[in-house]
């Protein structure tokens, strides 16, 4: 990439930082230039977030319909997949899958709920009372 071709597009980096790009200068030598972002990858990030938001909304609807427990919703909200939530809570994936069922969730002890609440950075009450 040539120095004059470095994109300076709007991106989520605005007001946080600019990124270092390695580019060829006029003499054909490498140097670094700061860039505010590139439209092409900003759109990749945007579409990834669109999908995340859709998944959160679907999870919320599933809780409202009574098909899933709040654990399922907060996992989506906090972008946590099974390995991540399992590591944060210390609970095995097999049990987490069970805890996503509303009937099992209702019978969980406060001790277990506390582990989830801590991982989701909410209170046990917020977790218990989430209705969608």
């Amino acid at each position: 990439m040539k120095k004059e071709e470095v994109p300076q597009d709007k991106s989520a980096l605005a007001n946080f930082t600019r990124e270092v790009c390695y580019v060829k200068n006029e003499e054909g030598k490498y140097e670094t230039v700061l860039s505010t972002g590139w439209e092409v990858k900003a759109q990749a990030l945007d579409s990834a977030w669109d999908e995340v938001k859709e998944r959160i909304e679907e999870a919320r609807q599933a809780v409202i319909r009574g098909e899933k427990s709040p654990i399922y919703y907060f996992m989506a909200l906090k972008l946590m997949d099974m390995p991540v939530i399992s590591d944060y809570t210390g609970i095995w994936p097999f049990f987490i899958k069970r805890h996503q069922r509303p009937s099992v969730f209702r019978r969980l002890s406060d001790r277990v709920l506390k582990k989830y609440a801590k991982a989701f950075e909410i209170t046990v009450e917020e977790l218990k009372n989430f209705k969608g």
């Binding site: 980096l13 990124e19 990858k41 990749a44 990030l45 579409s47 990834a48």
Partner: peptide, 23 residues
């Protein structure tokens, strides 16, 4: 899109680290 992010996102120097290696 995930390929593009791994390839171009902040941290790569652009072009999937290939410019960095050229430098």
């Amino acid at each position: 899109g995930q390929i593009v992010r791994m390839q171009e996102e902040i941290g790569t120097g652009g072009g999937g680290f290939r410019y960095l290696y050229a430098a």
